[in-house]
Amino acid sequence: MRRRGKSRTDFVRDLAIIGSGRHWLAVALALSLLALLPFVLRWTHNLNWLTFLNFTLLTVIAVLGLNITTGMAGQLSLGHAAFVLAGGYALGVFTVKLGWPFWGALPVATLLSGIAGFLVGIPALRLRGFYVAVTTLAFFYIIQFVVRNIEITGGIHGLIGIPYPYVGGLAIKSDIRWYFLLLVFCVLCILASVNLTRSRLGRAFLAIRDNEDAAANLGISVGLAKLRAFFIGALFGGLAGALWASYVSVVKLDQFTIWDSIWYLGMMVIGGAGSTAGTVLGVIALRLTSQVLHSIGSSGLIPLSSNLTIYMTYAIFGIAIILFISFRPFGLIAMWQKLKANYKRWPFGT
């Protein structure tokens, strides 16, 4: 082929997640800060913030899954909380009812949740857009119904006494140990999610999100890609659910409701749908908001009952979603990128 323009030859660097020495430094700094954080919190007697961090890490894992199904592959899912629920219940049943060890139950529970995702994806083979959203919603209710009506899941009482894991003889019991375990899982999930965006499958997801018909002409089997998107998304959700169940040692039906599905979508949109970093940002932003509201409510500064705090959270989350969709549809991550670009151009303005 004749060469006319310029082709890049340094794309090996372009391909790396962490491109430069400065970038490495930033990542190392961030990770060591995250590692120091729990000790600082313990030192300053802010252990409820550690619990908050742990739930945030769990939510990040769950929402990363939704970001794959909905953000990347464009399959609107209102049923993501059902996969988290399925993962939690699967771990509960295997450990409590069948007596499996945690590390044996975790992968199986995750995989089972993934298979549930696969099944939920089947109606999506023939449907598009909203119809997919509604079928996932329907599956959410069906999974709830099944869990409520079969005996092994403990019905409406749920399962209690789910064991905690051991890592090299160390019992993961305290919040601080859970923090490190969850941090490792979370970083691995983020890596997997980023890897997906630079692999053929991730691009196939983007292609079917943008245009199913044209994607087929790239040789992508649209149906299979959709099933895979649901499968991977549910894997992440199931992993989060299983860890969640072990962390709080109980699993109950009202732990994961349809509202959680909605919040997951909201976090994804506020962060920036389709972007891994954005998703993480979105989760942190919404979780932080609710924690701050909660702290205000319980501090007694403003007379708010716990119920009122919850209702206020609903309203504020709703407003946040509406504002972002209306004015910043690409989310926090786009705002951050713009800020970065402006900083580089300084002082020449926007």
């Binding site: 060469r3 323009g5 310029k6 890049r8 794309f11």
Partner: peptide, 13 residues
């Protein structure tokens, strides 16, 4: 590698 060749040829850098 292949894509970069095409990028250069199609002038869509």
């Amino acid at each position: 590698q292949r894509v970069e060749e095409i990028v250069a040829f199609a002038r869509i850098e």
